Amino acid sequence: MTDTITGKVVIITGASSGIGEATAKEIAGKGAKVVLGARRADKLEQIAEAIKAAGGEAVWQAMDVTRPEDNDAIVQLAKDSFGRLDAIFLNAGIMPVSNVSALKTDEWRQMVDVNINGVLNGVAAVTPTFTAQKSGHILAVSSVAGLKAYPGTAVYGGTKWFLRDFMECLRMESAMEGTNIRTATLYPAAINTELLSTITDPGAAEGMAGLYQAFGISPDRIAKVVGFALNLPEDTTVSEFTVGPANQPW
Rank of each mutant, 00 (worst) to 15 (best):
V112C: 00
T185P: 06
S135H: 11
G157W: 01
W250A: 09
V238N: 15
L211A: 13
K33G: 08
A229C: 06
Q46E: 14
I11H: 05
Q248V: 00
V65C: 14
A149D: 05
A145H: 05
R171Y: 04
V155P: 02
E107M: 07
A78Y: 04
T242V: 10
K104C: 05
R67E: 08
F166Q: 13
V59Y: 07
A124H: 15
I217Q: 08
S98C: 14
I5T: 08
R40Y: 08
L170M: 12
G29Q: 07
M1G: 15
K30W: 06
T200V: 11
Q76F: 07
S197T: 05
A38D: 09
T127C: 09
V34S: 03
L90G: 05
A38L: 02
I51R: 00
S218G: 12
G37T: 09
Y156N: 04
A48D: 10
L186T: 01
F228A: 06
V59M: 13
G29C: 00
F89W: 02
M167A: 15
F162Y: 14
D64F: 00
T2I: 09
K43V: 04
D106Y: 00
L147A: 13
I19S: 02
K148A: 14
S16H: 02
Q46S: 14
L232I: 06
A53T: 04
R164Y: 03
P233Q: 05
E177I: 03
E69V: 13
Q76N: 13
I5D: 03
G157A: 12
I88T: 02
A73L: 05
G31F: 00
A38E: 05
W250L: 11
C169G: 08
D201Y: 13
T237H: 12
L230D: 04
T179S: 10
P151Y: 03
D86Q: 14
T200R: 07
N247Y: 06
D70H: 13
N115W: 06
D42S: 13
G14L: 04
N192V: 07
D220L: 00
G31L: 09
I217K: 11
V144L: 04
L139I: 00
T193G: 08
A78G: 03
H137C: 01
I11G: 01
R171F: 01
M63G: 10
V123A: 02
E168Q: 15
F228S: 03
M208V: 15
I12V: 13
A62N: 13
N115F: 05
E168M: 11
F162K: 14
V226K: 10
A214N: 11
G31E: 11
Y187I: 01
P188G: 13
L232V: 00
K224D: 08
I27A: 11
A132H: 02
A154Y: 09
G152I: 14
I5W: 00
A38T: 06
V112A: 09
N117E: 01
A149P: 12
G31N: 08
V141I: 15
T193A: 13
S197G: 07
R171H: 04
I27W: 05
T193I: 08
E194Y: 01
Q248F: 08
L85E: 08
